[in-house]
Nucleic acid binder design. Structure first.
Lengths: 225, 225
DNA sequence: CCGTGGGCAATACAGGTGTATAGTCGGGAG
DNA sequence: CTCCCGACTATACACCTGTATTGCCCACGG
């Protein structure tokens, strides 16, 4: 360990003060947002002086950019390693990712609402993955490149990301942080339960009737619908 | 019109400078967050001086509280009026809500990630509504008060709210703002498509197998799973 | 008529923020 | 040893933010 980013899978060279600052910035940005985080707070959390933060990263924006790069690098690193070991299809891999990468996910979630370019890129990758999944699984229902699969994939990415962006409220209601390793599975099983039941509802006469009214009504963020 | 909040359904007395300030604050808070919004920016957007903002709302926190109250009031007002007119079950009502209350939804979404008490209360109401819906529709699958329905309802609220919190990314990918009246139906139909298909997947042997591994894996915010 | 209070604006002030600059310390190269 | 360069610190500065203070202006009641 040492670097908050990973589980000891980072080169020792990265454990310098510069890396400590970047890790502290990651936490502050994830917790307080790009605007709320302060350079002095980051410096204090990293145990260094304010000047050193500026010595390594010239400006706050550059520091944020470095955090963005570090996060996407860490994600790509884990995904490729998992792909190499064939763990990608393994159930429990995503649970592990949730458990070990809670900070990365929180950072990405906050960056998504703050609107960083890297977060937008990640969101786009998520939608691309969802689009691929949908088109491969139901080619006739979601023709590749169609507007329908594009809409569905975007909404899917937004909904799944929403469980991370709003993980604080989930933690409040569930009593435990769903990004902790030991509880990482709960929202996953809850999502499957939800999909099974709401899928039933969507294909029921009621759901079909609703969908048929093309003037259509959108989702209800609440419960009914 | 006059007040950004509603479609002219607010008392004239509310169209004072005080109301203009509150409406401008609503926009600023929704756009830049509680920390990013500035009193001077609000005053400028409202076309008044900084002193007047402070004259009507003593502090920034009090102004935010007033915005919270106004938003929940507006929502309750519309919901009760729709209930009185029997529009609640009508398809298209939620579309109308999305179309006319885009600002309110954006404000609530931002307040949810910023962590205001009112937003937490709204989130709790959403989960309560979802819990009620799930327990009524599938009483044996989601026994009232069970941990299972609590988890599912919380995740459902988070996912549906996610489409609003991340509506900016949705707008970027779809090319149009889903909170605009004319496109309000797209994410709704996309969600139904998604539920129909992912529900099929969740009840397929693959989905059941995944769910069976109780050590479980959580959701994939990306695509597969 | 006056004066009195509230909507409204201008300004002042203290604290925090990002940034720039000067300075200290230590270890390697000549 | 001397020099020098990079890590590191301390301080200063300009700006922005929320808040407090003061005063203007005008309608309204005596």
């Amino acid at each position: 360990m040492g670097s908050i980013l990973g589980a000891g899978d980072r080169p020792n060279e990265d454990l310098t003060a510069r890396a400590r600052i970047r890790d502290a910035a990651l936490v502050q940005f994830a917790e307080h947002g790009a605007k709320g985080a302060t350079l002095r707070g980051i410096a204090e959390a990293a145990g260094v002086s304010l000047g050193l933060v500026q010595h390594h990263f010239r400006s706050k924006e550059a520091l944020r950019q470095a955090c963005d790069d570090a996060v996407v690098d860490a994600f790509r690193h884990r995904l490729t390693r998992a792909a190499a070991e064939g763990d990608l299809g393994e159930p429990g891999f995503m649970a592990d990712l949730y458990g070990t990468s809670g900070l990365l996910l929180r950072y990405l979630a906050r960056a998504m609402v703050d609107g960083s370019p890297a977060a937008s890129a990640v969101f786009d990758e998520l939608t691309a993955g969802a689009e691929d999944f949908l088109s491969r699984t139901w080619p006739q229902r979601f023709p590749p490149g169609s507007a329908r699969v594009r809409d569905a994939a975007s909404v899917m990415a937004a909904m799944h990301s929403g469980t991370i962006v709003l993980h604080g409220h989930l933690a409040r209601r569930l009593g435990v942080d769903p990004l902790d390793r030991e509880h990482a599975a709960r929202i996953g099983t809850a999502m499957l339960d939800l999909y099974a039941s709401l899928g039933e509802f969507a294909t029921s006469p009621t759901g079909e009737r609703i969908r048929a009214s093309a003037a259509g009504h959108p989702c209800d963020p609440g419960g009914r619908q």
